[in-house]
Structures are given as C-alpha cells and as structure tokens.
Design a protein around this nucleic acid. Sequence first.
DNA 1: TATGACAATTTGTCAGACAAAATAAGAAAC
DNA 2: GTTTCTTATTTTGTCTGACAAATTGTCATA
Lengths: 284, 284
Amino acid sequence: MARKWSISASDSREPPHAPRRKTDSVLNLLGRRIVTGEYAPGDQLPTEAELGKRLKVSRPSLREGLKVLSVKGLVESRTRRGTHVRQRRDWDLLDPDVLRWMATGKPDPELLISLLEVRAIIEPAAARMAAQRAAPAQIAAIEQAYHAMAASLPHDVEACCRHDLELHEAIIDATGNILLRRLAQAIRTTLLAFFRLSANARESYENSLKEHWAVAAAIRRHAPAEAERAMRLLLAGTARDTAPAFAAPVGHKRRRTRASQPEKSDPQAKQTREERNDPEKAAT
Amino acid sequence: MARKWSISASDSREPPHAPRRKTDSVLNLLGRRIVTGEYAPGDQLPTEAELGKRLKVSRPSLREGLKVLSVKGLVESRTRRGTHVRQRRDWDLLDPDVLRWMATGKPDPELLISLLEVRAIIEPAAARMAAQRAAPAQIAAIEQAYHAMAASLPHDVEACCRHDLELHEAIIDATGNILLRRLAQAIRTTLLAFFRLSANARESYENSLKEHWAVAAAIRRHAPAEAERAMRLLLAGTARDTAPAFAAPVGHKRRRTRASQPEKSDPQAKQTREERNDPEKAAT
DNA sequence: TATGACAATTTGTCAGACAAAATAAGAAAC
DNA sequence: GTTTCTTATTTTGTCTGACAAATTGTCATA
C-alpha cells in the first residue's frame, strides 16, 4: 500500500535528494505515468479529490502539479468534464521533464529518429559556428571534455558517455547562441538515456575517439568547414552504432515509410550527394 | 487546418482582456512584468500574501501561477528567502509563453540574432527533408499557404506575414519530425512579432514572393538540393530586409564581436564558400 | 419526440490555519 | 571584542473545509 512517490529512487541525476516539495513529487509521478502510457491519451484521470486521497496530498498541492502538467501539454482540465490526458502530438517535446519521462520508458522510435535528425542538422552547423567564434576558454572547455572522455574510456563507459555529452554541449555553448544552448539542454537527458541503451558503447567509443578529436582540433584551429565535416563524420558513426539497438521495435507508429520517396528517383540526387554525405540517411 | 491546438495555458489568440482562469491571468501578468524587466533578475518580489492582495487573488491561485513561472525558469522560491527573479540565462527560451512575453517588450538583439541563426540552420535542412518526404496533402498545404500569401499581398501585409509563417511551418510539418515541429511552434510568435516590426515589409514581400515559390516548387518536384538552396536564398533575403530594423539597438550585450574571427584568416575559407553561400553571414 | 428546467458533479476559487525551513537577532562563553 | 550557540521571526509549503461556476445528465412537460 505504501505508494512509492520517491522519485529520487529512479532519478540518476540527483540521487541524494528526497522529494522536498510534494507538488513536485505529484508532478513527477503523474507525468511519468502519463508518458509511459499508464494513463493513455484521452483517458480521464480520477477526480482531484480521489487523486489527492490516493497520492496522499491535499488538493492545492495536487492542483499545482496538475497545473504544471497542463502547461507541459500532458493534460487538460475543464470544469465538470474532469482532467483528460492529451494526445501525444500536444505534448511539449522540448520540455526537459517530458523528455526525461519519455526516456525512462521504452524507447520511442519516432522520437529517436527525430532526435538523430535534429542532431544531424544542428551539430555540424554548431561546430562550424564554434570554429568561427569560440573564445579561448570555450576551446579549453571542449578539449577538457575530450580528455576526460579519453581518460575514462577503457574502464568507465558511463563516465565516457557523460563527458561525450559535455563535449557536444561545450561546442554548442561556444556558438554563443542562446536558443541552441537551450535546445541542447532539452535533449541532454534523452540523448544520455539512448546512449546508455547502446549495447556496444565501448567499442563504439574506441572507434570514434579520434573523430571526436578531429572536431575539437578543427575548432581550435578556427577551421569552420573542417569542423563541420568532422562533426558530420562523427555523427554518422554514432548513428550507425546506435541505430541497431532500436532496430527491433521499429515499424511502430511512423506515419509514412521513410523510403517512400527513394532518392534515386530524384533527378537532384547526384548533386545532393556531392554537397554532403548525408548523416541522416544512416540514422534511419 | 488544425491550428486549434494551443500548448500553453494562455494562447496568443486570446484577447488580452478575457483571462478566464485567475491563475492564468496571474501567470501572464507576472511573466510579462519579469520579462520586460519590471522585476529585474535577482529582485525579490513581494511575499505571496502581499502579491495576492495586490493582484486580488487568493494565495492558492497565486501559487499556481508562481509555480508555473518557476518551471519556466523565471523565478525561484525558497522558504524564508522569498521568490526571486532568476537570471536571464535560466529562462526557458523555448517556452512559447516566455518568447511571447519577450516579443512584447523591446526587441532583444541577442535573441533576434540567435533566432535568425537557428532559422538559417533549421529551415534549409527542413526544406531538404520536406522535398524528400512530403506527402501530397502536405505539399498542398505548403502551396495553399503560398497562394494565400500572394493573394493578400498588396493590401494586407499583416495577413501576408501570417501566411508566410504558415508556409514555413507547413514545410517543417512535412519533415515529419516531431521535435522540429515543436521548435517551429515555439519560435512562431517571436518571429511574427519581429516580422511586424520590419518596416518595409511590403516591398520585402514583393521581392521575395518568387523566392517563396521556388522553395514550394522544389518541394513539389521532390528536389531536395534545390529546395535547400532556394530556402537559403529566401532566408538570406529575409535577414537582409529584417536586420536594418534592429541595427540601432545592437551593440548591447553580445559577448564578443561577431567578426572577431574573420573567415579570410581561415585556410578553409574557400572550401567553405564552395559548399554553401553562408546565409548566417547576412544575418549578422 | 422534442424541449426546457432542474439537479448533480467536477473543477475553479477562496479563507484561514499550521508546519517546516532558513535567516536574523540575541545571549552566553571565550 | 569576537565567536558560537540558542531562540525568534519571517516566508514559503501544506492542509482543511467550504463555496462558486460551469457543464453535463436527467426528468418532467408540451
């Protein structure tokens, strides 16, 4: 009967913290239940009085959590109709909490693909901008992350993952673009969760270390084009190593098949190949 | 079209005078005050009792709004310390409400530049993906937006702005990428606000109509490379027309000058120019 | 069958109170 | 005079109970 609303048990980022505020524990618990499908879209969840009794919180505290869930697009409340779970398309997929909750459940192929595509778009451009603008301190941060990666490689893959993420975020930080910075921050946890699921992370890292360094070196030398190309290579490799882990659950809810417009039928295809070597292709 | 969805509690379509729920009116009022600087970062705002008296709402209602502000990163509350306005870097710049509030105040050069850069990164890639994958219905939506633009051009610039945005969003929608979709949704209002401030919008549109059509046509013909290039051209023109309106207040808080690393000093520069014609250069 | 008034249910809002936490102030010891 | 411990106070955090508003379901009536 003892309901576990201790979120900290499953939260890896801040283990020692008990849920200080009850409204936050409500938020996390309900958010996770909705995102994992325990409450399905369209479902009406219990009345506030009932929910409060079950979760053992007062109605004001419950309502604060519910209100936050509603601004994150997960639920919608109306008088007399109750509060209903909204459709997935309405969820705020750039909200760190939502992404974190989604990362705890079974990986969603559509989200994974979208995430890899966004990276393939953002990061080469970010590397390019970083090479143009990075200040010495920012370059130092990038290289420090790289060295931390290399140092922790053979034994501590988990730490390597973290420093990998640090490196990518340091690059985005060096662009000086506040929106990109926030975007990187949003996808951080999801990316980390997906990396963890990648089975052969260690060999993958051993292969890609020099690719990481190529990016860092190009940024240090202020060579935008080279940084962009190096990042494309790096991402292509990462996608190649990550994709197999999710090959099984694919074919789920994707609206259209990805190959419905084969590029070979496109007269511009050759020209396309000349311009770039399509990391997003490898992501599918 | 399904333009009904509003992810945030307070939609921009809603007139400023009709906040049904008090907690939303609190949210909007305080949010706007914070973003416009009426409450500066670091400031401690009045106690909940005092604020409730001033805004004429009860403490629970006030607290719901305050809680939402805290998840948006605008404020932070602690017992005995009160609730303080957080630093700008902590604000959730991908939150539609925050961006909307920022768009109401005087335009922030840093945000504008970041926004133009993000567009320059995202949209060419999106056009490319759309050309690869767009379903007939999505192509129709794109072209419909274009025709609406063209129809409302000479007399109704405001409507033209809206349909312009519709066109860009239809393209991003056609990528099938749920994260990109959410991103476009976030920057929608800000972009619209900035467009409105652009003085010579009409002439700008008259010049760029054919550039818009070039993008749509390339997507219809499923020509990715051409769509990408056309979008680059379009954005370069838009940036050129938009930037002058904000030339005056620039030189504000940008950490470094943008040209501190002139590309000519980069040995890779020529190669870079071959690959793309640098729309983000025009954005600066 | 259609229609209107009425009742029931659920969220929205309010008021007041106590608990918890963290700072500020003051007292005691050195 | 300075330091340290204790105490007091302020502010958020939470609870209880109640009423208002809105919307739906029901039932009586034409």
